[in-house]
Simulated scan of single mutants.
Amino acid sequence: MSSTTRITVTLPSEQVAELRKLTDNVSGYVAEAVARQIRHQLLGDDLRRYEGEHGNFTDEELAEARAKIFGTAGTGQRTDAA
């Protein structure tokens, strides 16, 4: 198990109330949210670096990526609710 560090985080009361409705393990929930955000940031950094070296992604490359992510066979339409 990795080591941990106790910190204090200040959140709006409404968010804390909703968070407590979602989980009994607030620390675990917040840790996973932070890990997800870090992965998102690192991926964005990698994509910007790649485009800086190789040029912008083409529409075809983006459609292929969306198809792989969302299973849409390159239609450009997302299958999730977002």
Rank of each mutant, 00 (worst) to 15 (best):
A35E: 03
T5Y: 15
G28P: 05
E60M: 14
F70T: 15
E32V: 10
L62I: 14
S3M: 04
R66N: 07
S2H: 13
G52Q: 06
T75C: 02
A31K: 06
L42R: 13
T58L: 06
R78P: 08
T72E: 10
V9I: 15
A81Y: 05
G52H: 00
E18A: 14
E61P: 05
R36G: 00
T5N: 13
F57Y: 12
T58P: 08
S13M: 09
Q41M: 07
E18C: 07
A82R: 14
H54V: 05
A81Q: 10
D45Q: 14
S27L: 06
A63R: 15
E14Y: 00
D46R: 11
G44Y: 05
F57W: 11
A35S: 04
E64M: 11
H54C: 11
A17W: 00
L22I: 05
I7E: 12
E64I: 05
T72G: 07
S27A: 11
S3T: 15
I69Y: 09
Q37M: 08
A31I: 00
P12W: 05
F57L: 14
K21S: 08
T23A: 10
R78D: 11
G44F: 03
I69T: 12
V30C: 05
V34C: 02
D46L: 10
I38T: 10
G52M: 00
V9N: 10
A33P: 04
S2M: 03
R39G: 01
Q77L: 05
H54K: 13
V34D: 03
A81W: 07
T4I: 04
Q41Y: 06
T58W: 08
T10E: 12
N25L: 00
M1V: 06
D80L: 05
V9R: 13
R49W: 02
R78S: 15
S3F: 07
V26L: 08
V9M: 15
Q15V: 06
V30R: 03
L22S: 09
N56R: 14
T23H: 07
H40C: 10
L22E: 13
R66W: 06
R6G: 07
Q77Y: 02
E32K: 10
D80G: 07
T23W: 11
S3C: 03
